[in-house]
Amino acid sequence: MSSPPLLRGAPARTDTTGLDAHGPDTAEPTGIAGRIREHIVSMCAGPEGGHLGGSMSLVEILSVLYFRVMRHDPRFPGLPERDVLLLSKGHGGIALFATLCEAGYFPAAALDEYARPGSHFMAHPHPEIPGVEIASGSLGHGLALGVGYALANRLDGSDRRCFVVMGDGELQEGSVWEAASVASAHRLNGLTAIVDRNGLQITGATETVHPLEPLADRWRAFGWRVLEADGHDAEALTRVLTLPAAPQAPTVVIAHTVKGRGVPFVEGQARSHYARLSGRQHLRALNAVRASTGGDRR
């Protein structure tokens, strides 16, 4: 099986000056988020289905990062001075694909390849896809990689930022706290973790299965600056994600979200974790997403 040709051949850019936060920042963010949600539900309506709930909860986090905060250029995914996003909660892969698509990394037709035999668009991200930095899916890996990126940036004397997006259930992995501890020990203030705090994991509420609270205190005790925001409020997310770095500590943003956000018949339910939407459910979900974004159909 060959890879889809549209993924190939991103040219190396030699002009590395003047990279700013990219994207149609004049674009109305709800419209972008709505289009990302449409892509997600459509991928979940494919023959394999997809991780619906934890992707829908991520939408504003990713759209704010890619359209308002990060310095990046979709024409040159490997640009040395780009800010880096590591999606540690790899089961949010389809949200990342949809966001990268809207940001211009590849055309929307690429998303039709999702889960097809031979496609790099699997349920979890793979770096063969332009804009995807690391393979993820086994939870508890991203923060350690973020430590490495942040160490490299510091050695380079660079102000580049590294964002690691984790699920809240993922914080049950011990390796997260090992990396959190190393990050604060080395005062990696170029590192920002974002926790998608949707409160649910496959078998139910995090607080029932394996409690995480008091979560903010736990991060503080590990030496991190803790910020909190409504994870579906683009303005609030933008505010916390554009604050100056703390002088000596990494930052974690606890983003309070709703699993399955935007699809009323699964919103806030653990069963939204993985879904294969029927034709009728697909239409209902698309209509709900479009209704909530004022009927924006691009």
Partner: peptide, 11 residues
């Protein structure tokens, strides 16, 4: 993991 991050950044 940190080694991987550093290597991805050219080290």
């Amino acid at each position: 993991g940190a080694a991987a991050g550093l290597a991805r950044e050219g080290r």
